[in-house]
């Protein structure tokens, strides 16, 4: 991140978790500009204090239901270039699906306890700031292991399987190419084959493909 230190806003009602997160972020060389107890507080402070990415808890006051998701939707509408990282206690992919419905760029969904892993947190923040999507890789791993898909996944080469996994995690073509030490062109070729083999509706180039891949993985 270097010279351009990433500015972060946090919306999280648990003080202890908030402090832990702030500490972790401090170690990642990012700057926590806003710490808010509710989504509305975050949005209010953002009017005075610009940030590059917001970390938002799904379940917060006042309703303790999907307040964080609503905050994310408002934020995405008012600040389309600000990264959004949703944190959820429960592995609930439909939250991610909902988050991506109005657009996939700059948005990510992580399990809460993943922030204990500094590397995973840094990677996720970087990606949402750069305009990629993020889906918790543990969740994707579990979906891929779900036996329903094993027969179909057997048709994919190990490389294609890895590409599929990265797509599901929301990585861009360039991101996948970097991670896999290969060229963007090669990645695109893999993708086309994956979409054909798995009969996933939609296009491998579509920026909404993370939704299509998730839907396929969930069997919906």
């Amino acid at each position: 991140m270097g010279a351009n230190t990433v500015r972060i806003g946090i919306a999280e009602d648990s003080a202890l978790f908030r402090d832990g997160l702030t500490m972790q972020l401090g170690r990642l060389d990012v700057q926590v500009m806003i710490t808010a107890g509710t989504g509305d507080e975050l949005l209010a402070q953002m009017a005075r204090q610009p940030i590059d990415a917001a970390i938002i808890d799904v379940r917060m006051p006042p309703n303790f239901t999907d307040d964080g998701l609503r905050t994310a939707e408002k934020l995405a509408a008012s600040h389309p270039d600000t990264g959004i990282l949703m944190l959820s206690q429960y592995a609930e992919l439909s939250y991610a699906t909902r988050l991506f419905t109005s657009g996939t760029a700059h948005r990510g969904y992580l399990l809460k306890d993943r922030v204990a892993n500094a590397e995973a947190l840094r990677d996720a923040l970087q990606r949402v700031c750069q305009g990629e999507s993020v889906v918790d890789d543990q969740l994707i791993g579990r979906l891929l292991n779900h036996q329903r898909h094993l027969n179909k996944l057997d048709d994919l080469t190990p490389t294609e399987q890895a590409v599929l996994r990265h797509m599901a995690e929301g990585r861009s073509n360039a991101g996948i190419a970097t991670t896999m030490w290969t060229s963007t062109k090669a990645v695109e070729a893999h993708m086309t084959r994956i979409f054909a083999k798995l009969e996933i509706p939609g296009s491998p180039d579509d920026n909404r493909r993370v939704l299509a891949v998730l839907a396929w993985l969930r069997g919906t």
């Binding site: 009602d13 648990s14 202890l16 978790f17 402090d19 832990g20 997160l21 500490m23 972790q24 170690r27 379940r59 303790f64 206690q89 809460k112 306890d113 922030v115 204990a116 892993n117 500094a118």
Partner: peptide
């Protein structure tokens, strides 16, 4: 469930972060 979610689980994750920080 709410007590667990809002209390214990959050604290444990915070502790987990601290452990990670201490470790590195």
């Amino acid at each position: 469930e709410r007590d667990l979610h809002d209390g214990t689980q959050q604290r444990l994750v915070a502790i987990s972060i601290m452990l990670g920080a201490a470790e590195s």
